[in-house]
Amino acid sequence: MSRQGRALGLLLVALAAASTGCAPTLGAVTTPPPSKAADLYHPAFDDDHIHLSKGATLGLDCYDFWWGTPCQGAVITSDDPTVARVLPAYLKRAPSPWAGAGASPQRERGFVVIATGPGETTVHVRSEDGESEVDVSVE
């Protein structure tokens, strides 16, 4: 791809991201256990996807796409709790490097997704700013 093409691609992606508004953005904050799956994927131009082994749990942070601030009033629901249960979680964040020296770690609400049984379902995250859908598959 040429330099102009790359620049155009970046611009398009940035515009696409901006056009999504401020829907909650999720980030994985835990690692899967050895030989098991507990991963969050961000496929291009598609909903996020979580892949879990049965019995595994994935911790998720929820933040504003542009500012990185925690989601406000976010609620998570699962279409099928027999495949994936969801619960709010209490996360500890190191202070932002922009917060200056001596800033205290913050604790903010995040979520966990718990793989309860094999199958596929969808998880919805709703905040004051919008809604995100995440496809979940449990093996």
Partner: peptide
């Protein structure tokens, strides 16, 4: 590109670390 686009822009918040 997609990962880059999802990186929080201003505080570079991906530098958070879970402490403890």
């Amino acid at each position: 590109l997609n990962r880059l686009a999802r990186t929080p822009i201003l505080p570079i918040a991906l530098t958070w670390a879970i402490g403890g």
